[in-house]
């Protein structure tokens, strides 16, 4: 594990960006880049930071690959950020690359929240702190709604997807069904609804 930390500093010529020739990407490089993204992506929206770091800055993958990985990340369980780290890390350097990427992206936030959690445990019941946190929690609701809204506009195929969304929300919030039960039931119906059609095949074979 320690040898990843002993990786030499990046070649200064490569850092200048004068040559577009692909160079060997080490596990250490992967760890450092994901650590940077994990430490700077304040305010959610890690996906935008990932695209900026991996596609624009480092050019480790291109836009098409990025979108492909993102589609897989969103379909699979797991947070988009960690799934992307696994997929990109694996693509670049196999299993070790995947581990380096996911540890790198998680480490800064985990350490920060460990410290925040301890501070909150000690000072969390001060009136000023609870007052401020009431505002923080309300703002978080707005933030998550906005993120979900934007994700929905990008990833939904049809307007009648609203029906699947509504059934899912009803199932969890009003019928109080467990998340896995709703996921499997509505998920299966939705997948069957979008079953492969002949016209799709012809379109793809064109």
């Amino acid at each position: 594990m320690n040898d990843t930390a002993a990786v030499p500093a990046p070649d200064p010529k490569a850092a200048l960006g004068t040559s577009a020739a692909p160079r060997e990407i080490s596990v250490g490089d992967i760890f450092i880049e994901f650590l940077l993204i994990g430490a700077t992506s304040f305010g959610g929206g890690v996906v935008a930071y990932l695209r900026n770091g991996l596609v624009s800055k480092r050019r480790w993958i291109n836009d098409k690959e990025f979108v492909e990985f993102l589609a897989i990340s969103q379909t699979l369980p797991g947070l988009n950020a960690t799934n992307m780290a696994i997929l990109v890390g694996d693509e670049l350097r196999g299993a070790l690359g995947a581990i380096a990427a996911v540890v790198g992206i998680c480490l800064p936030g985990a350490l920060l929240m460990y410290a925040v959690g301890m501070a909150y445990h000690v000072h969390g019941d001060r009136p000023m702190v609870t007052a401020a946190l009431k505002g923080v929690a309300a703002a978080a609701v707005g933030l998550i709604l906005a993120t979900t809204w934007q994700l929905g506009r990008k990833s939904l195929a049809h307007t009648y997807d609203v029906i699947f969304i509504a059934i899912t929300v009803l199932g969890v919030n009003y019928l109080h069904q467990s998340v896995p039960r709703v996921l499997i039931a509505v998920g299966l119906i939705a997948i069957l609804w979008y079953h492969p059609r002949k016209s799709d095949k012809e379109g793809a074979a064109r």
Partner: peptide, 14 residues
């Protein structure tokens, strides 16, 4: 992918 997209949005909303 198409089928799970609305369900995941629904779960996030829930």
């Amino acid at each position: 992918q198409k089928g799970l997209a609305p369900v995941s949005i629904g779960l996030l909303l829930a």
